[in-house]
Amino acid sequence: MSILSIKDITKDFKTEDKRIQILKGISFEVKKGEFVAIIGSSGSGKSTLLSIIAGLDNPSSGKVILDKEDVFSLNENQLSELRNKKIGFIFQSFFLVPSLNAYENIELPSQIAGKNQSKKINSLLNAVGMSHRKNNYPIQLSGGEKQRIAIARALVNDPEILFADEPTGNLDSKNSKQIIELLQELHKKEQKTLIIVTHEPEIAKVAQRVIEVKDGKIISDKNNK
């Protein structure tokens, strides 16, 4: 069953003298529980694609259906609700609120949703191996630790789908490996749909499906064995 349907997405940018097409009619579908890696070289359009799929940017044309909802027919508030309840984000730069500690950062989406989930937060802290650091502030955490907290935060509202944009881009090899393992483990355990944009071959290796983007087009879409 498809949870995400991308139909003929294009994205143009206008410069002073010409129009540049970043995405040139991209279409694919993602099944529920699937682990998809979108790869491509720098400037291939993969991050722009992820932003559009996640509803952070508008396409020039095309449609994105996420869990039966047409993402671009939603207004700002509905989009916020969608991001809060159905989507989890993991970014290269972690994007943790500096004035909140680890626990409070994880708690943030559930509080916005009006839920009190201390049990779940604690179990997520356990799952990402950060229980002992729950009272620490982002400034006191290493890059790897920050990303673990960001992953726990992305999962707290039990989203339908997780988007990760270069999640290991700011980490050293040891931490990168640990994060990849963690994502893999969470995917297996929680059966979440996971879409990762990356240029790391290690991630591509562990994904179920790898979509390669080049010059704004999908040049290959393969399932890993």
């Binding site: 700002e76 508030n77 916020s80 609700e81 969608l82 991001r83 809060n84 309840k85 984000f89 970014f91 994007f95 943790l96 609120v97 500096p98 004035s99 943030l108 989406p109 916005i112 949703a113 935060r153 509202n157």
Partner: peptide, 11 residues
């Protein structure tokens, strides 16, 4: 802060 709130669903 504002962007992070928006990313996790804050309107």
């Amino acid at each position: 802060e504002s962007i992070y709130y928006k990313l996790v669903g804050g309107n």
